[in-house]
Design a protein around this nucleic acid. Structure first.
Length: 198
DNA sequence: TAGGTGATCTTG
DNA sequence: AAGATCACCTAT
């Protein structure tokens, strides 16, 4: 039950970190209420040479500038005008890598998550897909840039060994990325019902 | 399967 | 300045 420390996030090779985040636990604490669950699906986005990454070709805007800071912070952005997507910034300052968390298996604060999502009963859609997950956890732009070593958003290691269950495939929704669209940088727990449907 | 919604990029 | 695109989700 230890919170991942800064050193975990400061490393290179974001795809490795993306894979290691499977089986870890993502939490938020908002208004005294903790919500969260086990990460079951992630995608790696690798700096200026990855055509699918927001920092591709050195792009740096008001939206993505936090990607260039040192790892261990939250990069959150509005997608399609509606959904807030949560990413984990990794690598040292100046290297704009990030991991998109795409799905969690809920374990804490289910009642509050149901309310945030306007759901009555616990179903897989509650935290399936990056937009849904963020809404369930109450993540929005007020969390932009927050340190993941802090008390609002953080990730814990519960010593669960899922490595043998992790599969990989191409990332979702990035067909425009040409040859990079074929990279196997999406990681997920095989046969886990909380993983998003393609 | 279409449409909502807004930041960013591209085109003229 | 206008138009296209986009790391998505929900209800037809």
């Amino acid at each position: 039950m230890t919170k991942l420390n800064e050193a975990f996030y400061l490393r290179d090779q974001v795809w490795q970190i993306s894979k290691e985040l499977i089986g870890k636990f993502l939490f938020t604490q908002i208004d005294g209420v903790t919500t969260g669950g086990m990460i079951v699906e992630t995608e790696a986005y690798c700096g200026i040479n990855d055509r699918a990454c927001h920092a591709n070709n050195g792009r740096k805007t008001k939206r993505n500038n936090i990607m260039y800071e040192s790892g261990g912070r939250a990069y959150i952005y509005l997608c399609y005008g509606i959904h807030y997507l949560f990413n984990v910034v990794t690598n040292i300052k100046g290297r704009a890598d990030a991991v998109l968390v795409r799905a969690i298996e809920p374990c804490q604060g289910v009642e509050v998550m149901l309310k945030r999502r306007n759901h009555n009963t616990l179903q897989n859609q509650l935290t399936q897909g990056p937009g849904s997950l963020s809404m369930a956890l109450g993540i929005n732009l007020s969390h932009y840039g927050k340190l993941l070593t802090g008390k609002t958003i953080w990730i814990e290691d519960h010593q669960i060994d899922v490595e043998h269950l992790i599969h990989s495939g191409p990332r979702i929704g990035i067909v425009y990325a040409q040859e990079d669209a074929h990279k196997l940088w999406r990681f997920y727990v095989k046969d886990n019902p909380w993983v998003s449907k393609i």
